[in-house]
């Protein structure tokens, strides 16, 4: 354990954690744009610069480990002036589209601009302008809003293990890009979308469908597979417009392409809402009682006539473990055959 003082307050924290971690554990706020506790420290945005007694220049809280006896100051006039300059510089190269931006209300940059009360900009000048749109099916990439925090690059590399994107070029127009500036063609897990602090990355299906302020969040579990990732459905005007996941869940907020982007079926007019029974070559809506009675009747008849081994059961990875357990129990004990299998085996 290490003893430190932050802004005069004495605290004790485990060895080896960063100053930013230490501050967060003690509810001391330090602004950040490029940090995420789930990723390797980056030290790029420079907002978390703090002063450590005895060090010649300010250091980034997100990359500097604590050491015994450190005396830390997280805010003073000079530090706040620098932070303000940084936010002002970012805004000087930003579309400032908040009025019509999907991210408004949920955007770290907007928050910072608000807290630092940045109205006019001393540095107004050239802005990066990109006309080429990325034609991939899932992710809207608006690189004019990108602040180059590098979170998407790191999540794709460190968490997803893919490295589908990286920063390309140098200088003012350095840019996050897939190889050779082609359209994004990756797993489309959307981790990058989930971690982007600005409106630079959005799900294409969500754009224009409702901002965070007007969204009702419904916590549930993804139905696509037995992993059972926790998901949050964002409902606006009685429509699911976006799926996210909280970082404090069993899946740490990470999802796959199906869980994150495969939700359009919910509002599909083709979606089945009742069982259908085929009568005279045509599907006719039926009640569950009718359907289950029919199944029981047919299964019993087959078993009677041909024996239980004439029946086989195949269950789905989309069911939970409990459901799969019950299913094999039903086939083995109820029907009386070992002909039972699961799609995940193929």
């Amino acid at each position: 354990m290490a003893n430190l003082t932050i802004n005069g307050k004495r605290i004790i924290v485990p060895d080896g954690i960063t100053i930013l971690d230490a501050a967060r554990r003690n509810d001391i706020y330090i602004p950040t744009l490029c940090d995420d506790p789930r990723l390797e420290p980056h030290g790029g945005c420079r907002l978390c610069l703090i002063q450590v007694k005895g060090m010649p220049r300010p250091v980034t809280a997100c990359t500097t480990p604590v050491t015994e006896g450190m005396e830390i100051e997280t805010t003073n006039e000079q530090i706040e002036r620098q932070r303000r300059t940084i936010v002002e510089l970012l805004l000087s190269d930003h579309p400032n589209d908040c009025m019509i931006c999907d991210k408004a209300g949920d955007c770290t940059l907007q928050e910072l601009a608000y807290f630092y009360d940045i109205r006019s900009n001393r540095f107004a000048g050239e802005r990066r302008q990109y006309t080429k749109k990325d034609l991939n099916p899932f992710i809207e990439r608006d690189m004019e809003k990108c602040i180059l925090c590098g979170k998407c690059v790191r999540v794709c590399d460190e968490i997803q293990g893919l490295g589908a994107i990286d920063v390309a070029g140098r200088g003012f127009t350095a840019k996050v890009s897939p190889a050779f500036e082609k359209d994004l063609n990756c797993e489309f897990c959307g981790q990058c979308v989930s971690i982007c602090p600005t409106g630079a990355l959005m799900g294409k299906q969500s754009v224009g469908k409702g901002r965070q302020k007007d969204v009702k969040e419904v916590e549930t579990v993804c139905t696509y597979c037995g992993c059972g990732c926790n998901v949050t459905l964002h409902v606006s005007r009685n429509e699911v417009v976006r799926v996210t996941s909280r970082p404090d869940t069993i899946n740490e907020g990470w999802l796959c392409v199906k869980g994150r982007f495969g939700y359009s079926f919910i509002n599909s007019p083709d979606r089945l809402t009742t069982p259908l029974i085929k009568k005279d070559g045509k599907f006719v809506p039926a009640s569950w009682d009718e359907a289950l009675d029919l199944i029981a009747e047919k299964l019993s008849a087959i078993k009677e006539k041909h024996g239980p081994d004439a029946i086989g059961g195949l269950s789905s990875a989309r069911c939970t473990n409990e459901e799969n357990y019950l299913f094999q129990k039903f086939i083995r004990a109820g029907i009386g055959t070992n002909n039972v299998d699961h799609c995940a085996r193929y």
């Binding site: 602040i147 140098r170 003012f172």
Partner: peptide
């Protein structure tokens, strides 16, 4: 500038 940090890039 490599573009990694804001004060330098912008």
């Amino acid at each position: 500038s490599c573009g990694k940090c804001i004060p330098c890039r912008v």
